[in-house]
Amino acid sequence: MPSRSTGTISKSASTLEQIDNPPQKEVVIEPRSGWIAVDWKELYTHRELLLFLIWRDISVRYKQTVLGSAWAVIQPLLLMLIFSLFFGRAVGIEHGPAPYSVFVFAGLIPWSLFSQGFAQSALSLVNQQHLLTKVYFPRLFVPIASACVFLVDLFYSLLIYAVVLAVNQYPPSWTVIFLPPLIILTLLATLSFGITLAALTVFYRDFRHLVPFLVQILMYLSAVIYPAWVIPEKYHPILALNPMFGLATAYRSAILGDGYPWDLSCLAISSVSTVVGFVFSIYYFRRTERAFADFA
């Protein structure tokens, strides 16, 4: 693209330049079939669009609410309170040395990103059908942007959690330095569910109704509100196929330290399952995206 400026004179100059150097980029449109490679170059050239979409979702999120972005703080606190009251008090699970609220919040940090992120991401394409049928851009950005929005919430909850820890006089372990890779894994897990479900929902609106149940079921399977050791060890490898099982446990080990031993084999299985799921989701999306506009 030759550079252009706003002046009329330079416009005609650039036109000349354009004709002298015809752009070499050729787009070929033809029917494709089977698995389609990811066009990383295209994703890179459109990277600003991804940022714009994320920024749009963030800035729209709390528009016309009285409390505004305070909701990002209130939501995790309320969740923590509800779980502390119902599960901590009423059910009484053996949850290790930390108070239940401290215990459960550690698991809720990745869980909130995962559950909200993938549920929102799953609906992102059908909620923005007009984008699918009216303009071309890398469609992968739509579910990715919807999920990434919840990274902001995650950082808010980390800040709140710091306060919760301080109030409970429960210093975090030095192993918190492992949080960044864990957060990246959580995001990948979120995206793998979100991207796959977003594509499926375009074709089968059934998933729109299925996703809330999926969130519920996964929560009970994910060792978020209870510690993994409640479940017999022999089931762990199977449960760890669900990325959040290994990840939620790992967040607690990383933050709370003593009393919450690392379960490295679970984490390894969950990590592999996350990465495999993510790669699958992207290729599944690429395979189906060419039919989106026909079905949206």
Binding site: M1, P22, P23, Q24, K25, E26, V27, V28, I29, E30, P31, R32, H130, L131, L132, T133, K134, V135, Y136, R290, A291, A293, D294
Partner: peptide, 27 residues
């Protein structure tokens, strides 16, 4: 031509940046 739907047969070659305006105010 805007790459929104894929053709069932045939081929299009286009040289240069394409912008399509199928609706005013998309997005």
């Amino acid at each position: 031509l805007s790459r929104i739907v894929e053709p069932s047969e045939g081929r299009v070659r286009m040289r240069g940046r394409v912008a399509s305006l199928l609706e005013v105010g998309t997005g």
